[in-house]
């Protein structure tokens, strides 16, 4: 029982990371119909921004050395700027392009960022010790909970609550939801398309920056491809949850985190190497039963 709870905590913590990443991808998909595979690379940029640019294997902290209240906004700012630049330079000229074209463009952005990181920081993974204190364990009854996992969960919940408040209560949030539902109609009513899209990129940048910090603290290593698996699993989470639904993205993120962790824990050891194959088989199963995802975005029924 204790072992299961321990695994569950691991699962929720991994699920949080996936949920945050999936939210960033889902937000842009909702408004632009863009499946942004470069989102993982925004995370990579946020992580590398913590250290001094050099090809050394041991990373020296730069921004990562600053106090948390300075470091966090600074990393967010850097990632937001990168996200906005990718919009202005790549996606804005493709505004009228089809969804697949946009997706392929996002692959290009992804490769450009990866190669840029490789040029400045070298191709070898680096060890980095961002916040060793976060790994202290807290005893809750018989459970040993690493403090970091609690922090990850709390940060995720806070960010989700903040995003919900923004989308429900602020004029720009309402405009973003309108644009996600019917972009053309929103512009007919004076909603500034590029502003709303820029906002979506900025928010997805902030979400990516949060993942940068949490994930780097947890993994203790950097690599120029570190964002790829995150983006891939988050994309799967978005699909499982239901394309175009933010609640779906979160549900999907947690679902994938739980599945992956539980498979890792309970698969017979000789099958563990195939964990991801089992995870994706499960995804296929979900989509066979619920093709529109766990939380389909069109919950409204149309009446004439």
């Amino acid at each position: 029982m204790i072992a299961f709870l321990q695994n569950l905590i691991d699962a929720v913590s991994l699920g949080s990371i996936y949920a945050l990443t999936a939210l960033g991808i889902g937000l842009l998909f909702g408004i632009l119909r863009l499946i942004n595979f470069a989102h993982g690379d925004y995370i990579t940029i946020g992580a590398y921004a913590l250290i001094v640019p050099s090809a050394d294997v041991t990373a020296r902290l730069m921004i990562g050395e600053l106090p948390l209240v300075v470091m966090t906004p600074l990393i967010c700012l850097i990632v937001v700027v990168v996200a906005l630049l990718s919009d202005v330079l790549v996606f804005r000229p493709l505004r009228r392009a089809s969804s697949p074209t946009l997706m392929i463009a996002s692959f290009a952005v992804s490769y450009i960022i990866q190669n840029g990181v490789m040029m400045f920081y070298g191709a070898r993974p680096k060890a980095v010790d961002l916040w060793s204190g976060a790994n202290t364990q807290i005893l809750i009854g018989d459970l040993r909970v690493p403090m970091l996992q609690l922090i990850i969960l709390v940060v995720t919940l806070v960010l989700m609550a903040a995003l919900t408040l923004f989308l429900r209560k602020t004029p720009y949030g309402i405009q973003m939801r309108a644009a996600a539902e019917d972009f053309r109609m929103a512009t007919y009513l004076g909603v500034r398309g590029n502003l709303v899209i820029g906002l979506a990129f900025a928010i997805s940048g902030i979400l990516a920056a949060a993942v940068s910090l949490l994930y780097t603290t947890q993994s203790g290593s950097l690599s120029h491809t570190m964002g790829l698996p995150l983006a891939l699993f988050a994309f799967v989470a978005v699909v499982v949850g239901g394309m175009g639904s933010l609640v779906g993205a979160v549900v999907g993120g947690f679902a994938i985190g739980i599945i992956v962790t539980m498979l890792q824990a309970y698969l017979p050891p000789e099958l563990r190497a195939f964990r991801d194959a089992f995870a994706f088989a499960f995804v296929i199963l979900v989509l066979l039963v619920r093709p529109a995802g766990l939380v389909p975005s069109r919950t409204t029924f149309e009446r004439v």
Partner: peptide, 12 residues
Amino acid sequence: FGTLTVDENLRI
């Protein structure tokens, strides 16, 4: 905007 409330539709 079917998922928005009537109030939100108007305010847009």
